[in-house]
C-alpha cells in the first residue's frame, strides 16, 4: 500500500470514528412505539386538504383500518377479473354526489370522484390532464411519479356558483379495509374564509356494512345520516352538516 493510500484510508477511518463519537451524543430515549403507530394510522387515513382548518379522527377497531384489500377502485368487482381498458375510469372518474342542500340561500353539494389506476406514463398524463379539467386544485393533484398503479379519489365541495373545492383526497395503491364500526372523517368550515369558521361540514367513510352514522355538534345536538355507496369505492361515505356556528364534536357508526 502506498503512503498516500495509507493516509487516505487513515483519514476515512478517522472520520468514521469521529462520526461514531458524535453520534453517541444523541439521547436515544425509549422508542415511541405507540406514537409511531398512531402516526402511521393517520398517514393511512385520508389526506385532508390542508388549506382549511380541519380536524381528523381515525377511530374504530384496534388497528383494523391498517388492513389492506386489493387495488382501490375495483370496489366489489371480482379481483381476478381483467378489466378492459375502455371500461376503466382513468380519465373519466366515477362520480357520486354524496350529499347536498341549501345553506344561507346557497346551494351546496359534495361530490366524490374516483379515478382508476393508470397503468403507464401515457395514462398518467391523460389522467392528470383530466383531473385539471375536472377542477382538482394544483395543491391536491398527485405527483406524476407516484401515480402508476394507484387510484385517486377526491371529495369536492361545490358551494353556490363557486368551482369545486377539494376537501379531502388520497392516492393509494390500496384502500383501507373498513369493518364494523370503523370510521374516518374530517370536519371543516363550509365556506373558505367565510364568517362562519366552525368546522361543521363533516365528510367521512365507513365500512360497507354501516347503516347509520351520527354526527354530534357543539351544544349537544346531533344529526343521523345514512352512509351511501359510491362508484369506484369499496367503502361507504357520509356527509353531515351542523347548525350554523356549531363545530363538529364527533361522529360514530350507530349500526
Amino acid at each position: 500500500m502506498s503512503a498516500d493510500r495509507e493516509k487516505h484510508d487513515m483519514t476515512q477511518t478517522d472520520i468514521a470514528l469521529l462520526l461514531a463519537d458524535a453520534a453517541d451524543e444523541v439521547e436515544i430515549g425509549i422508542a415511541p412505539v405507540q406514537a409511531v403507530i398512531r402516526g402511521g394510522r393517520r398517514r393511512r387515513a385520508r389526506r385532508w386538504a390542508v388549506a382549511a382548518a380541519t380536524t381528523m379522527v381515525l377511530a374504530g377497531s384496534t388497528g383494523a383500518t391498517l388492513a389492506v384489500t386489493g387495488l382501490p377502485g375495483d370496489g366489489q368487482q371480482d379481483r381476478g377479473t381483467s378489466v378492459a381498458a375502455e371500461a376503466r375510469h382513468v380519465d373519466r372518474p366515477h362520480l357520486t354526489e354524496l350529499a347536498g342542500g341549501t345553506d344561507q340561500g346557497q346551494r351546496w353539494r359534495v361530490e366524490l370522484s374516483v379515478w382508476d389506476a393508470p397503468r403507464d406514463k401515457a395514462e398518467v398524463t391523460r389522467q392528470l390532464e383530466a383531473m385539471r379539467r375536472y377542477g382538482i386544485d394544483a395543491d391536491a393533484l398527485p405527483e406524476r411519479s407516484h401515480l402508476v398503479g394507484k387510484t385517486s379519489h377526491f371529495a369536492s365541495l361545490y358551494y353556490g356558483d363557486r368551482g369545486g373545492r377539494v376537501l379531502l383526497f388520497d392516492t393509494a395503491q390500496e384502500w383501507n379495509r373498513m369493518t364494523g364500526k370503523d370510521i374516518e372523517f374530517g370536519a371543516l368550515p363550509l365556506t373558505k374564509g367565510g364568517a362562519d369558521r366552525a368546522d361543521r361540514l363533516v365528510v367521512g367513510q365507513v365500512a360497507a356494512t354501516a347503516r347509520q352514522v351520527e354526527c354530534t355538534w357543539e351544544g349537544g345536538t346531533g344529526s343521523v345520516v345514512r352512509p351511501r355507496a359510491a362508484a369506484g369505492s369499496p367503502v361507504k361515505w357520509f356527509v353531515c352538516l351542523g347548525p350554523a356556528g356549531k363545530a363538529n364534536k364527533s361522529a360514530w357508526v350507530m349500526d
Binding site: P32, A35, V36, I37, G39, G40, R43, R44
Partner: peptide, 9 residues
C-alpha cells in the same frame, strides 16, 4: 418518527 410511520404504513 416520520420515517417509522411511513415504514409502518
Amino acid at each position: 418518527q416520520s420515517t417509522l410511520e411511513q415504514v409502518y404504513v
